[in-house]
Amino acid sequence: MPDNARRVAVISLGGTIAMTAQTAGGATPTLSADDLVAAVPGLADTGIDVQVHDFRRLPGASLSFPDLLELAETIETLTVDGVVVTQGTDTIEETAYLLDLVTAGAMPIVVTGAMRNASMAGADGPANVLAAIRTAASTEAQGMGCVVVFGEEIHAARWVRKTHATSPTAFTSYPGPIGYVAEDRVRILARPSTAPTIAPQGATASARTAVFTVGIGEDGTLLHVLGDHVDGLVVAAFGAGHVPMACVDALTDLAKRMPVILATRTGSGPVLRQTYGFPGSESDLLARGLISGSTLDPVKARILLHLLLMTSADKEQILQVFSTLS
């Protein structure tokens, strides 16, 4: 490698991208970071100096907050130009947003994975890794925080969502990708606003949070039960922040005891503030002490809430952080 080669660290957490089919049936994580990088056609031609790190070999569904906070601390110690994290797609959106919140600096951090494991026809892992490495090595991606690269599209961590269970184009975002990779070039179309920053070394307290998705006919009984077992709650409400009238008393009680974030289950768009005024409307719930999740989807709102609780933030501090979201 030339002395001025761009340096990228590839950190493997496991997941489908690292899985192969087993004779006993089913795919499990077996490939190392070296294996993943070795399977990428054309990587040597990029001139990028790739360093590999085996961090975990877990399905995405089994990653934990301690795993990801340790990952963030590891990333901060690396002397490279960019970082690629490979993992299971089940929780890519959570990992990406957490890293966006707890890492600082301009170095690109890119999360990617695969929808088809290495034993399947049309495995998408090598192409995704190559595009992710190109993005992590590019000067164009500096200062954008953490992004997800999938199918040669670049998505901001705050907006990206897994919206299909099996499709190779499972990852989308609203209002859309912020860039893409084409003809070996990283092209950035828009830059996301700066996310709040939470010091990972301060996230040491234990916390238990949950997302409660409101459905038609809810009467508040399950909210009362859940409230006895969590330190904070995200309510995935109808539309722009609405719940059944029968849930209002339960949410009022919970908001007196803990931070309760009001988010929309729709997947895009904001929680309103003063458009509707009926019991269970967004203005009614906010007046009762719930905290607006703004445009954060429920999954991302839980990540932010959980990290804040891990830093022992009180309700007023949590309100202040959420109020900065656009």
Rank of each mutant, 00 (worst) to 15 (best):
M144F: 03
G145F: 09
C146E: 01
V147D: 01
V147G: 02
V147T: 10
V148S: 07
E152P: 04
I154P: 13
I154M: 14
H155F: 10
H155Y: 07
H155A: 04
A156S: 15
A156L: 14
A157Y: 05
A157W: 04
A157I: 02
R158D: 07
R158H: 08
W159C: 08
W159Q: 14
W159L: 07
V160M: 14
V160Q: 11
V160K: 06
V160N: 09
R161S: 11
R161V: 10
T163K: 13
S167T: 07
S167E: 10
P168C: 10
T169E: 13
T169K: 10
T169D: 14
T169I: 06
A170F: 07
A170M: 09
A170V: 10
F171K: 04
F171P: 13
F171Y: 14
F171A: 05
T172D: 06
T172Q: 12
S173L: 04
S173R: 03
P175K: 06
G176Y: 03
P177S: 15
P177A: 15
G179E: 01
G179A: 04
G179S: 06
G179V: 00
Y180H: 14
V181M: 01
V181K: 00
V181D: 02
A182P: 03
A182D: 12
E183Q: 14
D184Y: 05
D184R: 13
V186D: 11
V186M: 06
R187C: 03
I188N: 00
I188E: 00
I188K: 00
I188D: 00
L189T: 14
A190G: 09
A190M: 11
A190W: 14
A190F: 12
R191D: 01
P192I: 12
P192M: 08
P192K: 05
S193W: 03
S193Y: 04
T194Q: 15
A195T: 13
A195F: 09
A195Q: 11
A195R: 08
A195Y: 07
P196W: 03
P196A: 02
P196I: 03
P196Y: 03
I198G: 09
A199P: 12
A199T: 13
P200D: 01
P200G: 02
Q201I: 02
Q201L: 03
G202Y: 08
A203N: 05
A203V: 02
A203C: 15
T204F: 04
T204C: 04
T204V: 10
